[in-house]
Design a protein around this nucleic acid. Structure first.
Length: 124
RNA sequence: UUGGCGAGCCGGAUGAUCGCCCCGUCCCGGCUCCGUGGCAACAUGGGCCGGAUGCAUGGCGGGGAGGAAAGUCCGGACUCCAUAGGGUGCGAUGGUGGGUAACGCCCACCGCCCGGGCAACCGGGUAGGGACAGUGCCACAGAAAAUAAACCGCCUCGACCUUCCCUCGGGAAGAUCGCGGUAAGGGUGAAACGGUGAGGUAAGAGCUCACCAGCAGGCCGGGCGACCGGCCUGGCUCGGUAAACCCCAUCGGGAGCAAGACCAAAUAAGGGGGCAUUCUCGGCGUCCGGGCUUUCAUAGGCCGGGACGUCGGGUACGGGUCGACCCGGCCCGUCACGACUCCCGGGUAGGUCGCUUGAGGCGUCGGGCAACCGGCGUCCCAGAGAAAUGAUCAUCCGGAGGGGUUCACCCCCUUCCGACAGAAUCCGGCUUACAGGCUCGUCAAGCCC
RNA sequence: CGGGGCGUAGCGCAGUUUGGCUAGCGCGCUAGACUGGGGGUCUAGAGGUCGUGGGUUCAAAUCCCGCCGCCCCGA
């Protein structure tokens, strides 16, 4: 198994999980992303993306946002806190891959600290 | 060669490293069998038995966005519901012929308008049926805005006054008023009831005539047709607006893949309100009382009557349905925990199918001015879920700028840019967005022969 | 997938039905007067591509078509 993959079990599709994450009210953000977090009781992080039509109007731009966030997630998985569900919300359109890959791990670790989860140990 | 316009087409390429979605395959058949998720349907992995055995968060193989996938503006396919027809209404369309499954789309042609040209003609545009079926509207200005009328003006006649002339009877000119005639002239306006010339007249007028413009009717010729060309006749003449109401012709049943089918689960007879019930016929049963007959009397028999129950029919009424209304048809109900209906409340978005082979793509030949059609060959090409086709790098390609030498091209280096935009049942169109490039036609300018 | 509505001055609206009259009303804004000053009142004034592009008409905010933006409803 390649570490930098993105399998279905790492994806959040259940609306209930989204609702729990928003109600937990633990988030971190910067100029391009907002990340909500909630404990999931698993040994790996999971990713959910909520890109609303209000934030990003064009359908293809929404697709692009989600692709870039997924790409950043799988490439930086080793740096992310385990056992946390991450919900990513856009600030607006026009995200670049560079921004996403820089912001996501930082924000995820920040959310992890707020939840009291130990940061991921560097790969054994 | 460059630029403009029109039509058609393409809409980055190759490779490397990570990564995503779907399908097939890694055995086949059977089984109240088992694990995982789920209440279950189901999904996924395994077990056992019989016929030749590694790893399944995997291996191998195949496929994976668009010309607009978009807006959802038309037309169909498909599915369910309805179907008995007629009238009215509603909506859409509107030159002719063709194409098509169909269209409000496309093609060709006709008429009209605009531009160019002496003209023939060329280019562009065009929601283009009917204004003698009817109704309405046409502000301001103007006398008048639509069967015409008559403000100023012009003219005849009459009354009265003034001046002049005079052979004293009158005559001429002018002013005012009145009965009439007239539409030549007048300014306005988007638009003014034909134009020019001659005759004619008190003044005028298509009042008459000639030519021109227009309209109507008839005939001839051409065209499938819209229509075009010509001749004759007529009264002389009739505004615009139907993207105002309207009339005519043609078309249209309703919903939409959350259609719909099967399975699983859940909710079930929840609460409140609305609403109307006629008359009659026949059969059967029970009861009541009457008449006749028999008898001493009852019982019995016959006759017709009433009440109730039940079954069936007619009629009326009420409700539903047939798209909106009417006629008409069909269904249900007739004294009731019923039919129908309204409001509130409650439960459901789980699985499998529908689901992608189609008015299909490509090539080629033939028909047609074209849209398009036909024959033959060949190919199978996303189908999942709030939803997959991406990221990074390199090289190339195209465009723009700067530099290396420069009059310039070529060559080299470097920087930036490569749009609009994401399938959700599927097709045909329309509309809108779009960096750049290619091909053809046409026009203009420059250069060469 | 299907249906409905709105867009007019900085803000909130009328006018659109039946085309022409002047595109109007309130709040706000500017200037002046009253007051010692503020507030308030009065007077005067400015401010409009009528969402946008076409078309019909002599004439369009109004009629017709295309497009843009916003809001709402049903399955």
């Amino acid at each position: 198994m390649h570490p930098a993959s993105f399998r279905p079990h790492e994806r959040i599709t259940d609306p209930g999980v989204f609702r729990r994450a928003f109600e937990r009210k633990k988030s971190a953000s910067d100029g391009s992303l907002i990340v909500y977090g909630v404990e999931n009781g698993l040994d790996h992080p999971r990713l959910g993306i909520s890109a609303s039509k209000r934030k990003i109007r064009k359908a293809n731009a929404r697709n692009r946002f989600k692709r870039l966030v997924r790409e950043a997630f799988r490439l930086s998985k080793a740096e992310l806190p385990p056992g946390v569900d991450l919900i990513v919300v856009p600030r607006g359109p026009g995200l670049t891959f560079e921004q996403a890959s820089r912001s996501l791990p930082n924000l995820a670790r920040s959310v992890g600290r707020r939840l009291g989860v130990q940061a991921a140990k560097l790969s054994p």
